[in-house]
Design a protein around this nucleic acid. Structure first.
Lengths: 342, 342
DNA sequence: CTGAAAGCGCTTACAG
DNA sequence: CTGAAAGCGCTTACAG
């Protein structure tokens, strides 16, 4: 039933060594035998067994996508985009691909090194880590090439990739402030996410540039949760009914903010502008559509896999540290306010 | 660096056979040596190598999630839910898990059997197949246990799982019709998806039960695409301004429908009720929130993996054929119309 | 209850 | 340019 390398060798009249060489694209194979082998393999429907290859080979590389604490919340197709980006790169470059959903709990049961050994992982693309996760130190100190998405950590074999979060949030905030808004508030995620600090930095820069003074409670933390964003903004609106712009570190929170604004009788964008982050599908079709930052996560995944590849081949310039991917600020109706007189 | 079974054996003063037996939960091991082995393994941080295990073992089972033509459209966290459901089952039951995103194109490059051989796949959970995909015949005729999500095909080793699509769409439609709506229209997906036919059947049943006659153009096909749904409904509204209910085979299309209704000046639910399918995040926070069917895809994934497991152990009652998973009809404002006089 | 040994399906120095 | 052979890290009959 199952066709092995030996069957192909037999059918082609060569040894398994030769078949293996053909399939691994060795150069010094005569065209004639290469043809014979390929024909035999094709006729028999042969495909090399991955487990056997990874076990015996040093050259078959497998890269893992490690997704930490993914919440499948019906909302977010974003992790899937990253996965597909990595998968595509692997597919195009003859590398193996494995997906490993993990969690802070699982990280305590098995070290990062153990996981890599167990699954023959040669390199990894890691997303969703919190700044106090056990894997972080292990990754930084380890030998395994790792590309971290959205989290910069030290480490000789570690490169991080993300968009320029500071610039992106700054641009979004600037746009709103140019419309004459004077009382912006930010709804941020959590201190456990590095991007939160960066986006807040961008927000604060734009506010300062505009010559505005942010009150002490000008940044709310809603842990990237919809309902919490609603609640936090509702409380803030009681203290500061003058709020006329809400900058959110995620689209989910922007949607939560929208609920609060609606409840407060604020019309978007007339009374208050609103901007999110991530460009999840819901923002495009909400009423009004919400302006946001598109990060092109599929591209980030693809690029990240390419970086792992380069890291594996030691072909990456030293001290690369961080790679910036491009983003787009997508303007929709929620920031469509005309410049105001003042 | 890397710790192998031999290292553990040496440290524990036994042979690799014994260590292997301990890790595979053999019964006839003395408590004493078991303790020794476990202690040594723990101290060294040993984890069995998966490639070696799958290569040499008949008992380590690996189940694949095969996702066909996934469009990472920033919209749909639903595939991710299925993946996580399968992953969780595998994790809890000591089975290996692999993800294989495929496409109609890739299906032509490699047969289903080849894929299973190549990756040592013992069983698979398959989602997103079209009714004319190459894999379908191969799966039906094959030896590999497969659980198909949302698509029923024959085959001795095949079981399908889905919610009762007919009943679900029927229930959704009934609800709307009970509100007195007289001119319903359905926006369906594509004939290439089996669920489309079933949902249409449910819709038609409810319409007939209500004593209504559906016009020939009472069902539109929008291929599960947002923009196409908008366009199709816009055209339909020109012909039939009397439309007062739109039943959609997916939430994405419901969101597209909403755009058309808004453009036509129809207020939801006052002038026209609307219902979707899938319960993607966007429906909950749209304005108004859209009623829909929650399929619990994580549970379907988990159950599907369990069925694969049973299939592998030949412990499934013969002629199971199809397993129904439960669903919930979630009523939101878009079907919140009060009963009308007539 | 445990060891010795063959074998899973490949890859890759080493010869020639 | 191609073969013969060792080895990757495990599992599992077969003995004892």
């Amino acid at each position: 039933m199952a066709v092995k390398i030996y069957d192909v060798a037999k059918a082609a009249g060569v040894t398994v060594s030769t078949v293996s060489r053909v399939f691994n694209h060795y150069q010094d194979i005569s065209e004639a035998t290469k043809k014979k082998v390929l024909a035999a393999a094709d006729k028999l429907g042969y495909t090399p067994n991955v487990a056997a290859r990874t076990l015996s080979s040093k050259s078959l590389k497998t890269v893992a996508v490690i997704l930490n604490d993914i919440v499948a919340d019906r909302f977010d197709g974003v992790s899937m985009q990253t996965i597909l980006g990595v998968y595509q790169y692997c597919n195009e470059h003859g590398m193996q691909f494995v997906l490993y959903p993990t969690s802070t709990k699982l990280q305590h049961e098995k070290t990062f090194g153990q996981f890599c050994l167990e699954r023959n992982v040669d390199g990894a693309v890691v997303q969703g880590m919190h700044i106090d996760d056990p894997y972080l130190g292990q990754i930084a100190a380890g030998e395994t090439p790792v590309v971290m998405i959205d989290l910069e950590i030290p480490g000789a074999n570690v490169v991080s990739i993300s968009i320029d979060n500071v610039a992106a949030e700054r641009e979004a905030t600037q746009t709103i402030l140019k419309h004459g808004r004077k009382h912006p508030v930010m709804i941020n995620g959590t201190h456990a996410a590095q991007v939160s600090a960066l986006r807040e930095e961008g927000f604060r820069q734009a506010v300062a540039e505009a010559g505005l003074v942010l009150p002490d409670d000008g940044v709310l933390y809603a842990d990237f949760e919809i309902d919490l964003a609603t609640k936090k903004l509702q409380e803030a609106l009681k203290q500061h009914p003058e709020i006329d712009a809400v900058v959110c570190a995620s689209d989910a929170m922007a949607i939560g903010a929208m609920v609060a604004l609606r409840a407060a009788g604020k019309q978007i964008p007339r009374d208050c502008e609103l901007v999110g982050f991530d460009n999840i599908g819901a923002t495009e079709y909400s009423q009004p559509p919400i302006s946001t930052i598109e990060q092109h996560m599929d591209k980030i995944g693809y690029t990240a896999a390419g970086l792992v590849d380069k890291l594996l081949q030691k072909r990456l310039a030293p001290n690369i540290g961080h790679v910036y991917s491009d983003y787009d600020f997508i303007q929709r109706e929620s920031t469509g306010g005309l410049p105001m007189d003042h």
